[in-house]
Design a protein around this nucleic acid. Structure first.
Lengths: 77, 77
DNA sequence: GTGTGACTATCAGTCCGTG
DNA sequence: ACACGGACTGATAGTCACA
């Protein structure tokens, strides 16, 4: 299952970028119009996030969608 | 709902890249281990594809995940 | 080779709470 | 501010027959 690995990488990217922006999970939840606990589980790689929410998160973090996928196969790493 | 717009762009990207590779939906379905009709609906923007399937499709098409998001806000367009 | 409607099991996403 | 749990509803994954 490299599925879980991919989700973990994605989650870590979200967390890293959020920390760089120095905002809390709660704030990110508010900005992306998602639930606080959902952001939490995404960051821990427990959710198979859908494209619409990926976009929401990217916009909330004000980053390219690309950067959320950094380190995942399929991107040029 | 620009949600549907995003899904349409994504679907069009899949279709364009598939056509460039000159493979059929059936072949892409086989390569990505997804259903033929599922690929069909994704290309027409009717599915909110999840990250795991995005990765599968990108790998099957042998492209960067980035290129699947071209034209969608959040990418540098 | 592709579009489409319909279907069921499973999951996304939210809300409640705890520590 | 965050991890983690249960429980809930609507949406999605994945498949089928038919056009």
């Amino acid at each position: 299952m490299r599925d879980e690995v991919a989700l973990s990488i994605f989650g870590n990217n979200v967390r890293d970028l959020r920390n760089k922006r120095q905002i809390s999970q709660e704030k990110l939840a508010e900005l992306s119009d998602l639930d606080r606990t959902y952001i939490s589980s995404v960051e821990r790689g427990q959710r198979n996030v859908s494209i619409l929410n990926i976009i929401k998160i990217a916009e909330a973090l004000n980053v390219n969608i690309n950067s959320l996928f950094e380190g995942i196969g399929g991107c040029d790493e």
